[in-house]
Structure formats: structure tokens, C-alpha cells
Simulated scan of single mutants.
Amino acid sequence: MTTVTIPAAPVLAVTQDGAPLDPPLTLTPLADTVVMDRGAREFLILWRATFPWDARFETATLEVG
């Protein structure tokens, strides 16, 4: 048996020209998929966040911290 502890979600910020969007876009990433390589003793977590599209996001920047 292999036990994997899912770490805290990455912090996501959406900015426009370096400033937070107004009104802000709140993104809550959720662990969606875990891929395990038992031989290498590694795992990969795919995070997913969804939101309704708005035209103001076309020129925005997503920052992952």
C-alpha cells in the first residue's frame, strides 16, 4: 500500500498589468488527478480550477505561487 498526502493547493492570482483584477477572480484549485510512479517513488498532482469566462481575462496573467 502506498499512502500519498496531498499538499496544500498552490496559490493562484490573476492580475492585469501587475495589479489584481477588479473585481477579483477567486480561484480554488482542487486536486483532480494523482499519477504515481512507484518505481521512482514519485507522484504528480494535477490541480484544476474552473471559473466562468469573461472577456476581461483575455489579457490577464495567471500567477502560480
Rank of each mutant, 00 (worst) to 15 (best):
P52F: 08
G18R: 10
A40Q: 11
A40L: 12
E63S: 07
A9W: 05
L46Q: 08
P29G: 09
L12Y: 04
G18P: 03
L62N: 06
P29S: 13
T3D: 15
A49M: 06
D17Y: 10
T15E: 08
P20G: 02
I45L: 06
A40V: 11
L25N: 00
T2Y: 15
T26Y: 13
L46I: 08
L44V: 08
T50P: 04
T50R: 07
L27Q: 05
W53R: 03
M36I: 14
D54H: 06
D37K: 10
T33V: 15
A19N: 10
A8H: 15
T26C: 04
V4R: 10
I6C: 14
T15V: 05
P10Y: 05
L21V: 10
P23E: 09
D54N: 13
T59H: 05
I45T: 03
R56Q: 08
V14R: 05
R56S: 09
A9N: 06
E63I: 03
A55P: 11
A60D: 01
V11Y: 01
P7Y: 06
T2G: 11
A55H: 12
D54G: 07
F57A: 02
P29F: 07
V14H: 05
R48H: 14
W47V: 07
T61K: 12
V34S: 02
A60H: 00
L12V: 01
T2P: 15
P20L: 06
E42T: 13
D37F: 05
P24G: 09
V35D: 12
T26Q: 10
M1D: 12
V35F: 08
A49D: 02
D37I: 01
R56A: 14
T15L: 01
P10S: 05
A9S: 13
V11P: 02
R41W: 00
R38T: 09
E63L: 07
T28D: 02
V11T: 15
F57W: 13
T2N: 15
L62D: 12
P20N: 00
T59Q: 03
